[in-house]
């Protein structure tokens, strides 16, 4: 079975989570529409890393007993170490737009809305931005509307910001000191030139940009076996499409 793009992305996210240069990830929260980040977190668990996972919107295994407010209270205290955010638009300063294009409140294309992003992005020590679609309409020079800013001025309390932006084409590392992305690796079939062509914002490039590594055989075996087992209930369509597994009737 060939390596699926989703499997590569899950393994890539898992390696970013374990990055020893980043703040520790003891408790990770994963939102509803995030099967690939969820797969990355389950991969870590199945590799034996003692990470606590809070999978929002999953009925069984839901750790919260105080309703949906508890996630934000935990995050406010600094008890959630890592969160994933996406965006209808993401720009070169790591601003994210979940509201819509055009004039406020999204008179062009309206997206669902900002959810908790205007809080989580500030209060989580690190965020991994994840968006499979990598195109000039998503990765823009400047977002039309800011749901949550990538950097904040002094005098605004902020625990962290984006560690990286992972897309279907590449991995960007974010540098908050200069509020810019740097290209960290390109997925197979991509080049610096193809990434430039597909990206609306300017970014830094080192002399040599490596290819994003393949998942190892051990990672693939975990993803297709025990990780898929954990995800079947919440993401049946994803498991069928990526892992070729159907839920038992």
């Amino acid at each position: 079975m060939s390596i699926q793009p989703e499997e590569r992305l899950a393994a890539t996210l898992a390696r970013l989570i374990l990055d020893p240069a980043a703040p520790p990830a003891r408790h990770i929260a994963v939102g509803a529409a995030s099967p690939i980040p969820a797969a990355a977190c389950w991969l870590l668990r199945k590799q034996g890393h003692p990470v606590r996972l809070s999978l929002l919107h999953k009925r069984s295994g839901n750790p919260f007993t105080e309703g949906s407010r508890e996630l934000f209270d935990l995050t406010g205290q600094g008890r959630i170490d890592l969160f994933f955010l996406g965006g209808g638009q993401i720009d070169g300063q790591a601003n994210i737009n979940l509201v819509g294009t055009g004039e406020w409140p999204g008179t062009g294309v309206r997206f669902p809305g900002s959810f908790g992003s205007a809080f989580m992005y500030f209060m989580t020590p690190r965020t991994i931005l994840f968006r499979e679609e990598h195109s000039p309409r998503v990765l823009v020079q400047r977002v039309d509307n800011v749901s949550a800013p990538g950097v904040s001025p002094p005098g605004v309390f902020r625990r962290g910001t984006a560690q990286a932006l992972v897309t279907g084409r590449c991995v960007f590392r974010f540098h908050p000191d200069r509020a810019r992305f740097a290209l960290e690796s390109v997925h197979p079939g991509e080049s610096v030139q193809s990434i430039r062509a597909a990206t609306g914002f300017d970014f830094d490039v080192a002399d040599a940009v490596p290819e994003t590594p393949d998942p190892t055989d051990a990672e693939l075996a975990l993803l297709r076996g025990p990780v898929c087992d954990e995800m079947l209930e919440t993401y049946p369509e994803f498991c069928a499409r990526v892992f070729g597994r159907k839920q038992a009737a």
Binding site: W104, A118, F119, Y121, F122, N145, V146, A148
Partner: peptide
């Protein structure tokens, strides 16, 4: 009070 939000266009609106 609530943390965060400053710099978001939510606040501006």
């Amino acid at each position: 009070p609530l943390r965060g939000i400053i710099g978001s266009d939510i606040l501006a609106n």
